[in-house]
Amino acid sequence: MKKLLIALSVSAAAMTATVANAADYVIDTKGAHASINFKVKHLGYSWLTGRFNSFEGDFEWDKAKPADSEIEVTIDVASIDSNHAERDKHLRSKDFLYVDEYPTATFKSTGYKATGEGKGELTGEFTLRGVTKTLTFPVSQLGEGKDPWGGYRTGFTGTTQIMLGDFNMDGYLGNVPVELELNVEGIRK
């Protein structure tokens, strides 16, 4: 009986290990080793940059099986910060993000295609202001390994572009492109 129990627990442990093989990482928003930035051209003359200060998410990554990679990020849209209170207030209004109606934006990956060492193409559903669009954009891994405090981390970066019109935000500035940059560092759970 005792042997059976041991066998069961060993196999259970083995199963858990298999399931957790594509390692789960939580995005280190707590330590702010992650950021979601945007930039948009001001009148076509210069870059205006800003960020979303509050978001959370996690991802799965196994360097042996990159195709199994997944990521899910939820953004608190009202946390937009372009370093200008009056502008941020306007960006939160109905003219742009309409945060009263659509407080969160999400990105859920649907596929990952490795294109090289630590490089890949990420596809996923991006929902913003109630509109969901499929985005595909290149991402790259910056590094992976132990941290000095007993954890294990890896980080990625990726940039994509959306049009204001795709998310019903073109009424004010016109249908101009906005670049979105995602920098994430995950801590293995």
């Binding site: 209170a85 941020d88 207030k89 939160r92």
Partner: peptide, 10 residues
Amino acid sequence: ERGSQEEIAG
């Protein structure tokens, strides 16, 4: 109090 101040004051 950036983020909430301009919204509430507004």
